[in-house]
């Protein structure tokens, strides 16, 4: 179980994340939503340990993550929002390096790397440098790198970005299966439809604060709105989208 208790993150005295608290349980997929700049990626970076919270606590299975960062990281898998990879390495080399950094024995590692590359349709390009990969290919590499070591906690930040339709379907199924196998899965995405289909619980962030934290069914009932898109628009979208659309057209045609 992953628990955030009153987590705050300040940048130049401005709270990017403001007293965020929620629980992501094992066996459940928790969707983490919010508009751009709401603090989603910052929260995920704090959970991964890349950033330290200004206040609050982050616990995994009841233990603060700072207590034993090494064993925590051994159980953590993370797909970042930006596909920042070493461009001079090939896909296979990158996965091999990540596996070695995690201490996976060579025999098992090469089986896993080969398997992932096949399953993600990257095998023909495994010896090509990542600098030549498309965005979707890089995303697949990130996904494979995050899952190589059978993590207990999986954090996915915009994992569908750049994926083609079939890969997206595979990933959707994978997320569900991972949760079914007892993992803690926390993922953020702008694709509300996918989030609605895959997640058991939703946490919605707006201007750094949690504005919703419940199962989708409960939220629908509470807010009397049929879809997650409606719920999200109500809670987190401030713009009048119709008005914005009109004004943009006017600007273009000026």
């Amino acid at each position: 179980m992953l628990e955030l208790r009153g987590v705050v993150k300040l940048f130049s005295l401005t709270p990017a994340v403001n007293k965020v608290s929620f629980i992501a349980r094992a066996g459940e997929v928790t969707g983490y939503l919010g508009p751009n700049g709401s603090g989603k990626s910052t929260t995920l970076k704090m959970i991964t340990g890349l950033l330290d919270p200004t206040e609050g606590q982050i616990l995994f299975n009841g233990v603060p993550i700072q207590q034993d960062r090494i064993s925590y990281k051994q159980r953590l898998g993370y797909v970042p929002e930006e596909p920042q990879l070493y461009p001079h390495l090939t896909g296979a080399e990158y996965l091999e390096m990540v596996g070695q950094l995690r201490g996976i024995p060579d025999r098992i590692l090469s089986e896993k790397v080969d398997g992932f590359l096949h399953l993600l349709s990257l095998h023909p390009d495994r010896h090509v440098q990542i600098s030549s990969y498309s965005k979707g290919m890089r995303q697949k590499i990130l996904l494979a790198a995050a899952l190589l070591h059978n993590p207990d906690l999986i954090l996915l930040d915009e994992p569908f970005s750049g994926l083609d339709v079939s890969s997206g379907l595979v990933l959707r199924g994978l997320i569900r299966e991972l949760a079914a196998h007892g993992k803690v899965v926390l993922f953020s995405s702008h694709e509300l439809e996918t989030v609605e289909r895959v997640s058991h619980r939703i946490v919605i962030l707006h201007k750094g604060r949690v504005v919703a934290n419940d199962s989708i069914e409960q939220l629908r009932e509470l807010m009397s709105l049929p879809t997650l898109e409606d719920i999200f628009s109500q809670l987190a979208v401030e713009q009048d989208t119709a008005s914005v659309t009109r004004e943009m057209l006017e600007l273009i045609e000026r």
Partner: peptide
Amino acid sequence: PLSLAANWIFKITAVYR
């Protein structure tokens, strides 16, 4: 440095002393 933005992988996989 090279591709500094990609060094997050070393931070994430810091499972050794």
